[in-house]
């Protein structure tokens, strides 16, 4: 995959930016996310997590199976504020 390919559409993060994060020490999807914002958008990383795992495997030589999935954070899917709030 070329460096200019967008891997996270929500936050418009390219494969090159992810590779740079890995070169700077990121060894997990969570670490890539903190540096690049990949996975921090509306979809919560559902689209890009696989691609991030693949890039991590390619760059570090780790088997894909050993790469932990990103931590799942509630509410898991976007939920409107009004649906969560308790209103009078």
């Amino acid at each position: 995959m070329g460096d200019d390919v967008i891997v996270c559409r929500c936050e418009e993060v390219t494969a090159g930016e992810v590779r740079a994060a890995i070169r700077a020490g990121a060894r997990t999807i969570a670490a890539i996310k903190k540096r690049t914002r990949a996975g921090m958008g509306l979809c919560g990383g559902r689209t890009c997590a696989r691609l991030l795992a693949r890039l991590l495997a390619e760059e570090t030589g780790l088997p894909v199976a050993e790469i932990a999935p990103p931590p799942s954070r509630p509410p898991v899917r976007p939920v409107p504020v009004a649906a969560l709030a308790e209103e009078e």
């Binding site: 509630p74 939920v79 409107p80 504020v81 969560l84 308790e86």
Partner: peptide, 21 residues
């Protein structure tokens, strides 16, 4: 958290919460 937000910032009511920690 959502209740506090809606009360103080009504314009945010239709926004989505995407994660919590």
């Amino acid at each position: 958290l959502a209740t506090g937000l809606v009360q103080r910032l009504p314009a945010a009511r239709s926004a989505s919460v995407i994660r919590a920690w």
